[in-house]
């Protein structure tokens, strides 16, 4: 952290002369940053493509607020409340993660265990919520929508419900494609983040990092976890709010 700037040499010759880290950061952490940067490019590309297609088909593009209206144990429709809840859970789990990193800096094993446990729980709640939301989106409404297509040389009209990669009762099918792809890609990141956190969590309990003398692995998995939260902040804005 900020300690590097004062304890390490600052003139260019000593800095890049070898035997020291010019960036004041360990190899693992720097590679995690590079990976996250490339991942950020992927998500930016996806969201930009989403914006492009949404603009192109704006007259048949669904309003996300009208699509995601379900809330557990409640029959009525509340716009986006559950998504707001999911966002809050992910931000909260990001905060518990940064508290775990802080506890690691003080070599406080118990603190790291507690905060990492809460982070894992938050991530699991988020992944579950996303599965639940997918279920409602795929099932659709009772009302459904009508589509007409040619089958065996004759026009057929049928009512269909919900959305998949081919049809979408709420509007343009590309909306469903982007929804499944972007939230699915992000959801897989959350899932793998939870797995990574569980592995590190077991290591913390076993005292592996206590023995090593520092909790930098918690910091590295923390970087990944914050990135997942960062992406969701953008997905929340561009997919649900706008």
């Amino acid at each position: 952290m900020s300690a590097h700037a004062t304890t390490q040499p600052t003139d260019t010759k000593t800095l890049w002369g070898g035997g020291t880290s010019p960036f004041g950061i360990s190899y693992g952490k720097m590679m995690m940053w590079f990976f996250l940067m490339s991942d950020a490019f992927t998500f930016s590309g996806l969201l930009t493509a989403y914006g492009f297609m949404r603009h192109k088909f704006h007259d048949v593009w669904p309003v996300a607020g009208d699509v995601f209206v379900h809330f557990p144990f409640y029959d009525g429709h509340i716009q986006l409340l559950y998504v707001a809840f999911m966002t809050f859970v992910l931000i909260a789990s990001s905060v518990t993660m940064v508290l775990a990193v802080e506890a690691g800096h003080r070599m406080n094993k118990k603190g790291v265990i507690i905060w990492m446990f809460l982070t894992i729980i938050g991530g699991a709640i988020f992944v579950g919520s996303q599965a639940w939301e997918w279920y409602h989106f795929i099932t659709g409404t009772e009302h459904g929508a009508v589509r007409t297509f040619i089958k065996d040389g004759a026009w057929v009209t049928e009512v269909f419900h919900g959305a998949n990669l081919k049809v979408n009762e709420y509007g343009h099918p590309l909306f469903a494609d982007f929804f499944f792809f972007i939230t699915g890609f992000h959801g897989f990141h959350v899932f793998s983040g939870v797995c990574i956190n569980i592995i590190i969590f077991i290591g913390v309990i076993q005292g592996r990092f206590e023995k090593r003398g520092h909790y930098e692995m918690v910091e590295k998995s923390g970087l990944y976890w914050h990135f997942v939260d960062l992406v969701w902040v953008f997905v929340f804005t561009f997919f649900y709010l706008l």
Partner: peptide, 9 residues
């Protein structure tokens, strides 16, 4: 042509 949706919007 592929889009059947938007029926009730």
């Amino acid at each position: 042509a592929g889009s059947g949706g938007g029926g009730h919007h």
